[in-house]
Design a protein around this nucleic acid. Structure first.
Lengths: 211, 211
DNA sequence: GTCTATATTTTGATAGAC
DNA sequence: GTCTATCAAAATATAGAC
């Protein structure tokens, strides 16, 4: 009974610490983050943070690992096998939903990349490469089948990634550009429509549409 | 004569410090940057850095101000008055050239936004809003004139900004996505072609093209 | 303008009582 | 598991000789 109780406390506190750490790391980066700030944000005393994690490095690595895992789970349902129009639309919508609901994780990732991606493990980078390569293959198959026009698949994927991630990472700029109000679901819907419509209109061959 | 010599030394050292500071701030953020590191990167002793700038805040503000000014000068020639196809192509090309040749400045800006854009002055934010509003008006005029299809001008501008800036800020990811090599001019050319072609194909009305 | 020495504060991390 | 007290190292910033 006590063991179970202990486990529950541990799980809860580790979660609190990682939530707080993700937020502070995302804003201030690894070197700019003070353990004290993570402790305060998590509602736990600093020494308690050190009880669960041996060092700042450990916390950071754990936060990054959790982020990658979360992205994977959120996006794994988006297979690109189907009809191009539907696949692109679903991908853009799913990524924008992530930007809307989990901007902090997105910003932590951005900060890690700005740092030079030194903390990303070779395994994590290989995973990113694999996912990209798989999607490139699918897109090139679509091109070969005449379902979409000739296009550089890798740059196309980068464009989709960039356009969707921007709404999380650069929110202050997006707010200014949209007219200084807080971002709501409607804004993300409008973004999804703009990105998907524009890109699809450019990708779908002009003679195959009106079937 | 001595006055002039002094001025020259000052100008050169201030420049060195701001160059070094831009690089370190871009990588580690404001809180993560140590004055010692700026001093080392600039080749000047730490106390000398304090001779030119009163505090870390001062250096940071100066670096941000210089960056905004540089962007303005680089992009001011890109007026959107002309033909939409040419205007979009030139804008994308110009922004990608900036991402290629001055990625550090771009990353410093990204870091400042991740921080919450607290150091951007109201004047600088207003400037961003003004530039955006002006371009929105131009795009909406094009739509009204039937030169491009109906589209949300603000989200379209965000998409262009995002797609071009990504190549500077997320270079490690871009490298992985393109196949693990260093980015060269050819990659930026391919990116420009992909972005401009795809978006233009989606924007130009289908019946007005083959004139 | 340049640079050594140093005051002062804050940080990551630990020891040890409860 | 929780938390107070504290250390050693590192940080920002300054004083003052050259």
């Amino acid at each position: 009974m006590e063991k179970l109780q202990e486990e529950r406390i541990r799980t809860r506190n580790v979660r609190r610490i990682l939530d707080a750490a993700t937020e502070v790391f995302a804003r201030k980066g690894f070197d700019g983050t003070r353990i004290t700030e993570i402790a305060e944000a998590s509602g736990l005393p600093k020494a308690n943070v050190y009880y669960y994690f041996g060092s700042k490095d450990d916390i950071y690595r754990a936060a990054i690992a959790r982020l990658i895992q979360g992205w994977d789970e959120a996006l794994e349902e988006i297979a690109l096998e189907k009809d191009p129009a539907e696949a692109f639309t679903r991908y853009v919508t799913a990524k924008l939903r992530l930007s809307h609901q989990h901007p902090t994780e997105s910003r932590l990732f951005a900060n890690e990349i700005l740092r030079g991606a030194e903390f990303l493990t070779e395994q994590e980078r290989k995973h990113i490469r694999d996912v990209t390569n798989y999607r490139v293959a699918v897109i090139e198959a679509w091109i070969a089948a005449g379902k979409i026009v000739q296009v550089d698949a890798r740059h196309l994927l980068i464009m989709l990634w960039a356009a969707t991630q921007f709404y999380a990472d650069f929110q202050p700029v997006v707010r200014d550009a949209l007219g200084n109000r807080n971002l709501e679901s409607a804004d993300f819907d409008a973004a999804a429509r703009c990105i998907a419509d524009t890109i699809l209109a450019g990708l779908i061959p002009r003679d195959s549409e009106p079937t």
